[in-house]
Structure formats: C-alpha cells, structure tokens
C-alpha cells in the first residue's frame, strides 16, 4: 500500500507520518511537495500537522489553495482515502472536504498533551481496528482545535454517525473538563458522508510506539491496512 504525505511550507509532522507509514507499518510512503499535482498511484493521502503558511489569516486558509489541493479534492471525489491530522484537518475543513471549522482554543492557549478520546464509530475504514466505545489516549498539539459548525451541520454529523472521536475523561465520560479546546459536542475527529475523508485533531501517527508514550494510534493505520484491498476494489480508475 502506498501512502502520500503532502508537504506544505510549514508542515512539521510530515516526518512523523512518514515514519509511521514506512518504518512502523512497513508500507510504501512518499513525500509530495504541495506544488506537485500528480496523485496517481497512491492509496492514501495524508495531510500532516504543522503550521502551513504560518497559520496566516486562518489556519489552513492559504494551504487550501496550494496547487496540490485541486488534486486532493479530485482524489477524494474518486473515493481515495484522505486523512488530515491537526493542521491537515484544518486544511480539509477550509477546502470544504469536511464540514465546519477549527477555531482558536477556548482558553486561547496552545495545548500539547495526551488526551482521552472515545471511539464513537468503528464502522469506518479508519477505525475498524477499534471497538466502539473504546477509550484511547493520543496526543494533541494545537492552538486552533475548537471544532465549530452550525447547529444543522452538527445535527447531521450526529445523525449520520460522522463523529469519530470525542474528548472524554479517563472513564470515558463526555464532560466539559475533558474538553481541552471548547469543541462543540466534544468533537475531536469527524469523517465525510462518503466515509473516505477523515479529519482528526489528536495525532494517531505520534501514538504508534510505546517508547513514545503509547500505541493507541496504531489502530488507525491497522484499520486502513486491513480494509485497503476492499477499498481498492471499489475505487474506479482515473
């Protein structure tokens, strides 16, 4: 399986994603410069974390117009798997591939710590390796992770089971204290309606080795790998 990791000016988790895909899971992985415009041959595109374009104007707002993004949008429309982690999630939201927007954290601070999240939907390519309701620990590192969408959109996300992870406490309870950034309904990760575009503020790629503090992120990669043959069969040729 071949992962493509997009490198925007200011991306800084591209190496983490590459390391996870290539060295931990033994898959093909390549960096894709944001000015490249050919995504043929990739099975999964990752938009990594970082501070693309210095977060100027709004997080992800300028990266969304990088040349490669037209191809990412086409790739997603064809059913290709796309993951946006942290800044990558912000870019997917700005690009309209995922609904809503990631705003400044409720307490205005940059937060860098491990948080507990609950798997709300395990019937997706990205979460099939987890149990529904499982509580995971993954790191977050962001200043703008406060998920917001209008009431109608949030209702649609809830009704369609598009909320994938929610911030919870260690016991799996969804409380205000467990919500690090003020996200509406404690939303930490969502998926598009079609089920092939996944955006997450917590970093699964940084939680794949116990030496780095935990392995709860492995499930995202394991889920993709186990379901990949399935997806490939469904994916039409260009």
């Amino acid at each position: 399986m071949k992962f493509g990791i997009i490198v925007f000016p200011g991306s800084n988790c591209d190496h983490d994603c590459y390391h996870a895909a290539k060295h931990i899971f033994g898959q093909h992985a390549e960096y894709i410069w944001h000015k490249d415009t050919n995504l043929n041959g990739y099975d999964c595109i990752i938009l990594p974390g970082g501070f693309s374009y210095g977060d100027y104007l709004r997080t992800g707002a300028i990266a969304r117009f990088s040349p490669v993004m037209n191809d990412v949008i086409m790739f997603a429309k064809r059913g290709g798997l796309v993951i946006g982690i942290c800044n990558g999630f912000q870019i997917l939201a700005e690009a309209g591939l995922l609904p809503g927007v990631l705003m400044r954290n409720r307490d205005l601070r940059f937060i860098c710590k491990a948080v507990h999240i609950k798997v709300e939907n395990n019937e997706t390519v990205f979460t099939s390796a987890y149990k529904k309701g499982e509580v995971l620990s993954m790191p977050i590192a962001h200043a703008d992770g406060n998920y917001f969408a209008d009431a109608e959109t949030v209702k649609r996300l809830e009704d369609n089971n598009q909320i994938i992870f929610r911030y919870v406490n260690a016991n799996g309870q969804m409380t205000e204290d467990a919500n690090p950034n003020g996200s509406i309904n404690n939303i930490a990760a969502i998926i598009n309606e079609k089920g092939n575009v996944f955006g997450t503020m917590p970093h699964p790629e940084r939680a794949c080795e116990s030496i780095l503090g935990g392995e709860d992120g492995r499930g995202v990669f394991e889920g993709i790998l186990s379901q990949m043959s399935n997806v490939k069969a469904q994916m039409p040729k260009n």
């Binding site: 104007l57 709004r58 707002a61 300028i62 117009f65 700005e94 809503g100 927007v101 705003m103 917001f148 969408a149 209008d150």
Partner: peptide, 8 residues
Amino acid sequence: RLLANTVI
C-alpha cells in the same frame, strides 16, 4: 473564497 470563512 479566501478572506473570510463564511461558516463563522
């Protein structure tokens, strides 16, 4: 297109 995000 760019200067405002009309969601918010």
